[in-house]
Amino acid sequence: MSQPETINSTVTVMPSRHEAGVAELFREHNRALVAFLQCRLGSLADAQELAQEAWLRMLALEHPEQIDSPRAFLFRIAGNLAVDRLRMRKLREAPSIDEVPEPAHELHLAPVPERHAAAFAQWRELQSALRELPAKTSRAFVLYAIEGRDFEAIAHTMKLSARMVRYHVTRALAHCRARVEEREMP
């Protein structure tokens, strides 16, 4: 990042030129930007909204000529917006899993009412995909993706390194993704 890039010799940059630059950046990177935000936020709708916001901020920059890598800057803005959004969510979060009463034992086998059949089927697929995995792998994945713990916390619980936890979560994610898809298709 510190290597010399194209140097702006002009003192002021014409706004139109900056806008053109942003437009090009948009064409090239908007899809990745939305994907990046969706990954962070777990919501495509939120991702699209924040991407919009990030582009507006790019356009509103007062000294765009001072930015050496607009792409890096764009993703930095987006990253910060995502952090803010996640923090806001925490404040008005729906009851977390911990506040939901533990179901009685028999409930495990009972069909769960008031749920769309499709979602239920999907959950079943997920459950059987997880059963195909080594215990450690499914455990790390459930703690991460379902309980919402972070890698370090899981590392602590499972007495593994955070790197290993991420490895297990990655494997489970790819496996479940493939499995759920497979059975979804008739």
Binding site: Q38, G42, I97, P103, V112, A135, L143, A145, I146, E147
Partner: peptide, 21 residues
Amino acid sequence: FGERLGTLDATARRQLVNEFA
């Protein structure tokens, strides 16, 4: 897929946690 995982309801999540973690 990650997004869909996030939309599982609390009971479904609870059951997965009980079984796997």
